[in-house]
């Protein structure tokens, strides 16, 4: 176990090293700090002097070590656009993204487990077939398109009264969608609760929650089909195993077998795959945040690209890289803990 632990953690450090080299290469290849600092009128000698002073003439290795040393102390340079430390900018934007990911994860967990389990227990039921069909189609719809369709349906342009208008709730829903503009599709709203540090939360106000609905549903839509299929496949395999047959032979109730014995063993691989998938969701947050102008790190990254804000791009890469490496390592370690048969070499294939 100790060998596994050491191996996994040293691998994480190696990956972080590679990411930092790539980030450094981008900064070195694209950014010319001089251009940002001085005007056109500065003479070539003065430029050379500043270059020398900044250490831009040092050997590559020395420059990299300086970059890595600063990064370890939490200094990844200043953003050109915001004119303040890049990590501060990221810290301001991170809570919005985290809340989006939390919202989407909640939707995924509360929908995929019941649907996946149901589809595994009753594979022939029409409802199961319906869910599996929908998930096949769902995989083929890009996340930004889901988002656009949701906006079209629930936020703008709905003039049809969908709900029975003779009931109170139907009338209220019709009014909500047709005259009051439906669900918000832009930003996080203006009623945010201050939690701590830079964390402004939308979870505690009505408008904050309303603004979360469409973005979270869009983000969840890309992962939901994957999870439903995964849970169904794992559950079906578990239901075939000997101990389940034994439990049936013993005469245990179906509910007890399905939900106590089978579900427990289904969730193990699901949780580990899920951990990695939630890391992958970061890539999809860029798309979702672009559609909804959600002020998180994804939108910030994309704006940094259009503004050629190199330090911010580099800092985003480092932070996202760290998040990926930490989640992957944790997932591997947890998997190693709960499943001791995992090979010490840690090869997945």
């Amino acid at each position: 176990m100790l060998a596994f632990l050491v191996q996994r953690i040293s691998q994480a450090f190696l990956v972080m090293f590679v990411i930092s080299v790539i980030a450094f290469a981008i900064q070195d290849g694209l950014g010319d700090p001089l251009q940002e600092m001085v005007g056109m009128s500065v003479s070539e000698e003065e430029r050379e002097a500043i270059r020398e002073e900044l250490g831009l003439n040092d050997p590559m290795v020395v420059q990299y070590l300086r970059f890595a040393g600063n990064a370890l102390q939490g200094d990844l340079g200043n953003s050109y656009f915001y004119s303040k430390p890049t990590l501060e900018v990221i810290a301001e934007h991170l809570p919005a993204t985290l809340e989006l990911v939390i919202g989407a994860s909640l939707i995924i967990v509360f929908l995929s487990v019941p649907i996946g389990v149901y589809a595994a227990i009753r594979p022939q039921a029409w409802l199961s077939k319906f869910f599996m069909g929908v998930s096949t189609v769902g995989i083929s719809i890009p996340v930004f398109l889901t988002a656009i369709v949701l906006i079209q349906l629930f936020s703008i342009g709905v003039t049809v009264n969908w709900f029975p208008s003779d009931t109170g709730w139907g009338q209220w829903l019709n009014d909500f969608f047709t005259t009051e503009g439906g669900l918000p599709s832009y930003g996080r709203g203006d009623e945010l609760t201050h939690l701590f540090g830079t964390w402004e939360s939308g979870f505690f106000t009505g408008t904050g929650l309303m603004h979360l609905v469409l973005p979270s549903v869009s983000l969840a839509s890309i992962m939901l089909p994957l999870f439903i299929r995964l849970i169904r496949a794992e559950m079906m395999e578990v239901l075939q195993s000997d101990y389940i047959r034994y439990a049936r032979a013993k005469g245990l109730s179906a509910g007890r077998i399905n939900f106590l014995h089978a579900l427990k063993n289904t969730m193990l691989p699901v949780i580990t795959v899920g951990g990695v998938q939630i890391g992958i969701m970061v890539a999809y947050t860029i798309l979702t945040e672009t559609v909804f102008q959600w002020p998180g790190v994804g939108l910030m990254f994309l704006e940094a690209i259009t503004r050629s804000d190199i330090p911010l791009i580099v800092a985003y890469l480092m932070v996202v890289g760290l998040i990926f490496v930490v989640t992957n390592t944790l997932v591997d370690l947890i998997y190693g803990l709960v499943n001791p048969t995992v090979k010490l070499t840690g090869k997945k294939a």
């Binding site: 970061v282 890539a283 999809y284 690209i305 050629s308 791009i313 990926f324």
Partner: peptide, 21 residues
Amino acid sequence: VQLSFSTLMVAIIVGAVFKAS
């Protein structure tokens, strides 16, 4: 490593670097 980063993320980053350069 590349797969753990998700291929879309890798593509976005490479695309961003190319576009900037």
